[in-house]
Design a binder for these strands. Structure first.
Length: 577
DNA sequence: ACAGGTATAAACACGC
DNA sequence: CGCGTGTTTATACCTG
């Protein structure tokens, strides 16, 4: 059923639960790549030779005052080689991943260890490199712990700390024009964290960024100590590494898919796709914007993160939420998200899932109306009812955007609550809570997509394919706040919630088309909705939501709904500026 | 041009 | 009186 590229959640679970590899085993996997890398190495060497030759030619030509035409030729040649390299890397990466997967399932621990010489350097797919660095950095920073792993010393030889050089190489073809193709060569000794103490991907804001760790380390030295002691090369760490590996892989796959889809969309819409990614058009492709932004947020240090390169190495270790690129924000901010967005743009649930985490950390205005958000907040609550303050808290918790300008959006929330009939105020002992009158809410939904059932179907079905991603996405993106394993293993109900919310809106729209506007609720009289009762002892009857609706409402139960994590209202005051 | 939905701002009432 | 909550009005924008 599954393609070799996609890992099912079950598989992920398997990996997480039972298949803890020893470092040796992990190493074996790596060694299996050596054969592959050999050929690439050859290519690289060839390329380097070419480089030198080209350099010579350039010099000669300069002295001889030859035609620039020839230089052009040379440059093109270089480019071609680079592309070749990139392709090779791509291929190898895929190969590697599939091999790894095999390795996960059928391990041959007895395999003799090949000497992992520097040949691997620069050719290991970036994320693997990164992972190895993560595994081994502690051992180099300080002296290795008691058990010596033969491979450690050499794997750390050339891995730079935050892979900027590699990134820039891949991103920037001009880097080769100086003849100094910065593909990692063995001699180019690593500038590790000593040189860039603050750029360690696992260390940021005084906190260890190891997935699920978040240990506080005052300075870099203590961080290194911590890394060495807590994240030594043991089963746990390797398992975490592997999970992270899968996470990155999934992310890349998803990114590639979405890019492909975007391309297809734009092609279909006859948009000149000269620069597909940069399309600043009022198309307002929420998903693409989100993707690129989340990417930039995730790896702010790899600045030249051109979305056009499918092999763009996503730095697997993300930074904290503090790296909010305000410049990007502002480009999106003015864009008036219209409700039609939700219906005209085929937002997949995967997008939403990503959006969810994205909006949590990035101060980007969510493309949903206040009413939708309020309703979502209420429906996510166990009791399907929230006080005003709890609604506030939900907003601030789920959307970074709503952590400022509190006066404005809170006013808007109150305004919406009062204005829309779909929000019913219910007084109970402790005060008043707000509930959602689904019927009323569905009534107000436009009949937009009634004529395009295929779209609906598409959106609904797309949820299925996104589901396996949730855990991984969540694990990788929420690592700042939530331990990796908890999220990865149990998944995140909140993600499903938002996704289901959209589906619910769609279902509602469909239901609306089915039942037209006649109030199909048997239990409630239309009058009741017209006159919002201000004192209601009983919550809304859930049974009046039939079919798909009831399905969703039950799915909206989120067991780990974290009330306690309420944000204070304080963040409103400028913590950013 | 118009209606409907929405966002934003603001005035006001009310209770604690 | 200040504050939170809730209601209402006004205005502007967008979309069909």
């Amino acid at each position: 059923m599954m393609t070799p590229q996609v890992i099912t959640p079950q598989q992920m679970q398997q990996i997480l639960q039972q298949q803890v590899l020893s470092p040796q085993q992990l190493q074996v996997l790596l060694q299996q790549q050596q054969a592959l890398m050999l050929q690439q190495q050859q290519l690289q060497e060839f390329y380097k030779k070419q480089q030198e030759q080209l350099q010579l030619q350039l010099l000669q030509q300069q002295h001889a005052g030859k035609q620039p035409k020839e230089q052009q030729q040379v440059a093109t040649q270089q480019l071609a080689f680079q592309q070749q390299l990139l392709q090779m890397q791509q291929l190898q990466q895929q190969h590697l991943l599939s091999l790894q997967r095999q390795g996960l399932l059928t391990i041959q621990p007895g395999q003799p260890a090949l000497p992992l010489q520097p040949l691997a350097q620069g050719m290991i797919p970036t994320e693997l490199q990164q992972l190895w660095k993560e595994v081994t950095s502690a051992h180099t920073a300080e002296e290795t712990t008691g058990n010596n792993h033969s491979s450690l010393d050499l794997t750390t030889t050339c891995v730079s700390s935050s892979a900027p050089s590699k990134t820039s190489l891949i991103m920037n073809p001009h880097a080769s024009t100086n003849g100094q193709l910065s593909v990692h060569t063995p001699k180019r000794e690593s500038l590790s964290h000593e040189e860039h103490p603050h750029s360690h991907p696992l260390y940021g804001h005084g906190v260890c960024k190891w997935p699920g760790c978040e240990a506080v380390c005052e300075d870099f030295q203590s961080f290194l100590k911590h890394l060495n002691s807590e994240h030594a090369l043991d089963d746990r760490s390797t398992a975490q590494c592997r999970v992270q590996m899968q996470v990155v892989q999934q992310l890349e796959l998803q990114l590639a898919k979405d890019k492909e889809r975007l391309q297809a969309m734009m092609t279909h819409l006859h948009v000149k796709s000269t620069e597909p990614k940069a399309a600043p058009q009022p198309l307002n492709l929420v998903s693409s914007v989100t993707l690129s932004k989340s990417a930039s947020e995730a790896s702010p240090q790899s600045l030249p993160h051109t979305p056009t390169t499918p092999t763009a190495p996503l730095t697997p270790v993300t930074q904290g939420p503090s790296v909010i690129t305000t410049t990007n924000m502002h480009t999106v901010g003015p864009i008036r998200r219209r409700y039609s967005d939700k219906y005209n743009v085929p937002i997949s649930s995967a997008d939403i899932a990503q959006n969810q985490e994205f909006y949590k950390n990035a101060e980007v205005r969510p493309p949903f109306t206040y009413a939708s958000l309020i309703r979502q907040a209420i429906l996510e609550s166990p009791e399907k009812q929230l006080t005003l303050n709890e609604i506030y808290n939900w907003f601030t918790r789920m959307f970074a955007y709503f952590r400022r300008n509190a006066a404005t959006w809170k006013n808007a929330v109150r305004h919406n609550l009062s204005l829309h009939k779909c929000f019913v105020r219910v007084e109970n002992v402790k005060g008043a809570v707000w509930t959602v009158d689904e019927v009323e809410f569905q009534k107000r939904r436009p009949q937009k997509i009634s004529g395009n059932p295929s779209l609906i179907k598409n959106m609904q079905s797309s949820h299925a394919y996104c589901t396996p991603l949730n855990a991984a996405l969540q694990a990788s993106m929420a690592e700042n706040s939530i331990p990796l394993y908890t999220t990865a293993s149990m998944g995140n109900p909140t993600l499903g919630n938002l996704a289901s919310a959209i589906r619910e809106e769609l279902n509602g729209a469909m239901e609306h088309t089915n039942s037209n506007e006649s109030d199909s609720s048997p239990g409630r009289s239309p009058m009741q909705a017209v006159h919002p009762v201000h004192v209601k002892e009983e919550p809304l009857d859930p049974e009046e939501a039939e079919g798909p609706l009831s399905l969703v409402t039950t799915a909206n139960h989120s067991p780990d709904f974290d009330h306690d994590r309420d944000y204070e209202d304080e963040p409103v005051n400028e913590d950013m500026e």
